[in-house]
Design a protein around this nucleic acid. Structure first.
Lengths: 75, 75
DNA sequence: CTTAAATGTAAAATTCACTTGACATTTTGT
DNA sequence: ACAAAATGTCAAGTGAATTTTACATTTAAG
């Protein structure tokens, strides 16, 4: 049984607490395009592990503080 | 300046401590193919964030206990 | 030694993260 | 109201992660 996972993120919140860091700024700090940040923040898709680490690094927090996951459906 | 990241993992160790869990078993628990596990464990590429979470979940640990990252080169 | 299980490697195909570019909408400041 | 900045959306293209299949090598057990 596939054990599907749902990933959510706190990017909006973290940007807010980081002195309202702009998506553009975050994109530059994390080394990604602005569109990528928008899509991830909006939950359209989840990033690669590498980009996830770079985003966490941009905020100076651990990866678990940026992304949460939830397991639904079980064996 | 690009801020490159290097990702490493503890999958071998975790499999060992998890009663020598087989790559096949881990693949099934994490919902991935055996080859994917082999490639990730060997560091050939890093997984998606989703698979990273599923692997951590298979071991019952946090994602940071499976994958480490290191920042090299800086501004 | 022989067999089976576990691990590794390689190639082709598919999916999806990510980029670039361009334009639309919303928000903020003056 | 106007301009500028921030945010959002769409589409096409590239590249990397993942799968499938198939075979080779190593390890463990009888």
């Amino acid at each position: 049984m596939a054990k599907k996972i749902y990933i959510s993120n706190n990017i909006r919140r973290l940007r807010f607490f980081a002195n309202e860091m702009t998506q553009q700024e975050l994109a530059e700090k994390a080394g990604a395009s602005r569109q990528t940040i928008i899509a991830i923040e909006a939950g359209k898709y989840s990033p690669s592990l590498e980009l996830a680490f770079r985003i966490a690094d941009a905020f100076g927090v651990k990866i678990g503080e940026v992304f949460d996951y939830e397991v639904r459906g079980e064996s």
